[in-house]
Design a protein around this nucleic acid. Structure first.
Length: 254
DNA sequence: ATGGCTCTTGGGAAGAGA
């Protein structure tokens, strides 16, 4: 069983890469963020032709999320029912015995931006909702672009980033509170190379110099963590022409 | 370092991303 999260930064641009990647990496569940497509423009037929079922929730220009699955998708929930949000950032579904939550956490922009308190309140409400969902689903995964680097080792230059958006203590506390519900950061369940990141700036040779941050995560409930045998970041598609600035993160479960 | 790079809308220039 393979569960994946990938911020594709426009599915319109990246659909050929997603389909190529899936050909090379057959997976069970693929959560996408930043599809940037209204639902009427979503490439459902192409994805189904590749052998995947799909649930999606999008809007014009920004945000947008989707879940692709080899298996039947049921009980689709769009956005957090506890949080009024004009932005389409969450889609959840039940797949086999698992509750899958695909999330695109707000970026926050900067600590003095009005988007920063939005990010924190969004995360606080996510916490409440995930708590509810966990009480009903022992096997639960929250996959997505969290826009939070959990620790200093998840940042290429922690000193330069100290206190900034993506690493500030309130954001990290919000992520930790989510984990404290009983979730595990699957990536850190295993030995990993130093300076492992999931996002690199398009500018200034960010990828070539490995100036990145690890902000895309797969959190697993205890029942799923017990089945997890690996978690890796696939840097291959980041090397392709016209790549997303994010790399896919893949958790493998027995 | 003010930006850099990429994407979107709209058909040019500007906001957002992280």
């Amino acid at each position: 069983m393979k569960l994946v999260t990938w911020n594709v930064n426009s599915l319109k641009v990246r659909l050929p890469q997603v389909l190529t990647w899936l050909e090379n990496n057959p997976v069970d569940v693929l959560c996408l963020q930043e599809t940037k497509l209204t639902d009427d423009k979503f490439p459902q037929a192409e994805i189904e032709a590749a052998g995947y079922q799909v649930a999606f929730s999008g809007q014009k220009t920004y945000n947008g999320v989707a879940i692709l699955s080899r298996h039947a998708i049921t009980d689709v929930q769009k956005n957090n029912p506890l949080f009024e949000d004009a932005q389409q950032r969450i889609i959840a579904a039940t797949i086999q015995d698992m509750r899958i939550i695909c999330a695109y956490v707000p970026n926050g922009q900067a600590l003095d931006s009005e988007k920063y308190p939005y990010k924190l309140s969004w995360l606080a409400s996510l916490h409440e909702w995930v708590k509810q969902e966990m009480s009903q689903h022992a096997s639960l995964a929250v996959l997505g672009d969290y826009n939070i680097a959990p620790e200093d080792r998840d940042v290429y230059d922690p000193a330069a980033w100290e206190g900034q958006n993506l690493v500030s203590p309130p954001e990290r506390a919000a992520l930790q509170a989510l984990i404290d519900l009983g979730l595990s950061d699957s990536f850190r369940m295993f030995e990993q190379a130093e300076k492992s990141f999931s996002w690199w700036d398009y500018r200034q040779l960010g990828f070539r110099l490995n100036k990145g941050v690890r902000i895309d995560h797969i959190l697993l409930s205890a029942a799923l963590a017990a089945r997890c045998t690996s978690c890796v970041i696939d840097k291959v598609p980041r090397k392709w022409e016209q790549p997303s600035d994010h790399a896919p993160v893949i958790a493998t479960l027995d």
